Amino acid sequence: MPNTAAEFIANKSKPSFWWFHSLGWTVYVVIFTIDNVFFYRDYNKLGGDVLYPLLLSGLFAASLTLPLRYIYQRCWNLKPLKLIFVITAGSLLVSMVWTPLKALSMWYFYERFDVLALILGQPPEDFKWYTLFMSISYAFFMILVWSSLYFGINYHYRLVSEKQQHIEAVKLSHISQIKMLRYQINPHFLFNTLNAVSTLVLRGNKERANGMLIRLSTFLRFSLDNEPEKKIRLFEELKALMLYLEIEKMRFDERLTVEFVIEPEAENLLVPSLLLQPLVENSIKYAIAQMSEGGLIQIKAKCIDNYLHIDVNDNGPANQTEYDNRLTEATQTASSHTGVGVKNIMNRLSVLYPEDHQFEVVKGMSEGYFVKIVIPCERA
C-alpha cells in the first residue's frame, strides 16, 4: 500500500510492475538466445540446446526476484547506506539460489546431465559441488541490474508525480490567490452601491433606487457566473462594465460620460474577468466625484505587436494631492480595504502574467489620469 500521496499518484501513472518484470526477463532470454545461436553457429540448436535452458533460467530468475520486490517496498525509506546493504545482500542471496538452478538446467540440455540422480544424492564420481556456483558473479551482476532498474524506474515515476504535484499545488495556489483578490471587488463595490440606494430611498426616489437594485443584481449575477481564475473575451468584460456604469450613471446623472474606443480585433481577446471595473471605479472616485459637470472616462483597447493595450483615462482634476492619493493606493497592501482597487489589479496581473505585463498610472499634463495595461494577446 502506498504511504504517501506521491506514491499513490506514481502507482497510478506508471506502467504495471508485472509488465516491466515480464518484459525485462523476456529480453534477457531473447538476447542470450541470439548470443548462443551465434556462438554455436548452428541454427538447428535453437531448440533444445539453447532456447529451453534459457527459458528455464529466465523463469527461475523471474520467480526468485519477486520476493525482492516486496523486500524493497518495505525498505524504500531506509538511509542510503542501509538501503545499499539490503540491495547487495538480497541480490547475493537470490544469485546463490539462481546460479545452481541455472547451471543444472544448462547441463541437462547441453550435456544430458542426470539432474535426478544428483537430487537423490548419487552424483557422478568426478562431480565437484563447487561447479554449481562457478558463475555466481555473473548471476549477482544480473540481479543487481534488476534491482537498479527497479529502483531507477520507481524513483523516476515518483519524481514525475512529485513534480506534477508541485505544478498542481502552484496552480491551486494561484487560483486561490486570484479568487481572493477578485472577491475583494464585490464587497467594496456592493458597499458603495447600497449606500447610494439608501440615500435615494431616504430622499424618496424609490424608482431610481429600485432601478439601481435591479442593475446591481444583474451585475452580481454576472460576477458570480464567471470564475475569477478564468478569462473572458474583452467584449464580455465590456458588457459587464456597462452594467456597472449604468448603476454609476444613476448616481451621477449627466456628470458622467463614458466613451469606448475598441478595435474589432481586440474584442475577441481574453482578459481577466472584472479587470476594468475597479479602474473605472477608481476614476469615478478621484475624478467624476470631484467634478460638478463634464466628467469623462475613456476606455480604449487595441493590439500592438501581439500585445493587448488597454487604457482607462479620465479628465478629472490633476492636482498633486489627488495624484499622490492614487499612487498611495497603488502601493498599499492587499489587506488594506482602502487600497483594494489598484492593488487588486496589480496583484492579479502579477499572478496571471508574471514578468509579461505592464501596469502604470500616469498623471496628465493638464488634467486627468491615465491607466495603461499591457498583456499578451490570447484568443478565445
Rank of each mutant, 00 (worst) to 15 (best):
F219Y: 09
Q298L: 15
L120T: 09
V342R: 10
G47T: 11
Q290D: 14
N36F: 14
V86K: 01
F235C: 03
R255F: 05
K372Q: 14
D305V: 09
L245P: 01
E378M: 14
F85Y: 05
R233A: 13
T4K: 05
A117P: 08
L78E: 10
I153M: 08
Y157N: 07
V258G: 02
T328W: 06
L200Y: 13
R251L: 13
I167R: 15
V197K: 02
S91N: 07
A289Q: 08
P53H: 05
P228Q: 03
P278L: 07
H174V: 13
G47F: 09
F133N: 08
R158L: 15
S336P: 13
R69C: 08
E229L: 00
I9N: 14
E293W: 10
K79P: 05
F260D: 11
K82G: 10
V160M: 12
L83W: 03
V145P: 06
V361R: 01
E248S: 00
R158K: 09
P187E: 07
K179R: 05
V86F: 00
Y353T: 01
I84T: 10
F38S: 14
M96H: 02
A103G: 06
D225H: 10
L159H: 11
Y150T: 05
V27F: 06
P278F: 04
E227C: 04
R41D: 15
E227V: 11
Q165M: 12
L270I: 07
P80A: 02
L81N: 12
K163N: 13
Q122C: 06
L78T: 00
L308E: 02
K163D: 04
M365Y: 13
A209D: 07
H188V: 00
A380W: 06
T199N: 15
A289P: 07
P80E: 06
H337Y: 11
W146H: 11
E360F: 06
N154P: 04
D49P: 06
N154K: 00
Q358R: 11
V197I: 10
E248M: 12
T218P: 00
P187M: 08
Q73I: 06
L132D: 07
P53A: 05
S283M: 09
L116T: 08
N306I: 01
F20T: 02
R182K: 14
A61Q: 13
Y150G: 08
G204K: 04
G58D: 02
L68G: 02
A334Q: 12
S198C: 11
K363M: 08
N282V: 02
L172N: 10
A334P: 12
R74V: 09
V312S: 01
M291F: 07
T333M: 11
L118C: 08
W19C: 09
W129Q: 04
N226T: 12
L308S: 00
F151N: 05
D225M: 01
M291S: 03
L181S: 10
F109M: 05
S283I: 11
G339N: 00
R182T: 15
P100D: 01
S161A: 14
F38W: 15
V86S: 02
S292A: 11
C303P: 11
F151A: 00
R41Y: 12
M365F: 01
P100A: 04
F191I: 01
L256F: 09
